[in-house]
Design a protein around this nucleic acid. Sequence first.
DNA 1: ACGAGGATGCTCT
DNA 2: GAGCATCCTCGTC
Length: 183
Amino acid sequence: MNPLRSILEGPVLDAAPALLGWRLRSRIDNVVTEIVVTEVEAYDGANDPASHAFRGRSPRNLTMFGEPGGLYVYRSYGIHWCMNVVTGPKGRAAAVLLRAGVPTVGHVAMVKRRGRQDHLTDGPGKLCQALGVTGVHDGARLLGRGVLSLKPGLAPTTVEQTGRIGISKAVDRTWRFVTSDVV
DNA sequence: ACGAGGATGCTCT
DNA sequence: GAGCATCCTCGTC
């Protein structure tokens, strides 16, 4: 079995830090772009007041209730897209928000999509824009041969753990994981 | 480096 | 109708 799959099927608080160092590749509009994940946050479904799934299933959050390894994409502040990796166990609606990464492939395409030369992938909305991810990719499978795929990478040597960014609920939970290690 | 303010649209009450 | 899992620009220090 795919070793990545077993990690994504596990608890979100294990999967979130494990995702640091992994590569996320997109092939969208026939352009390949790829980043190494450097910042994530865990959201734990019905057990987490800050989760979009806290109050149960809805049209928007349906993907989180599906298989681990799926991609949950939502619109943020009416303007940006943000993406999460669904984790296990199935039905718990736990997910890892991908907040930032380091560009490794397709730098020119990212500059074009972002409309600027710097700060290409240092925020959740920027990450989606640079990789070309939008609402049509909600529900995409990340462990197959689709337009989006996760691949293993080098585990970072140092990981910082802090509170989550931009939320007002459950602020005491230190479920944000960041690394500054460069691959 | 850092903070304030505005843009913008969907979700759920 | 309120409230956002955000980003950009422009002001200050």
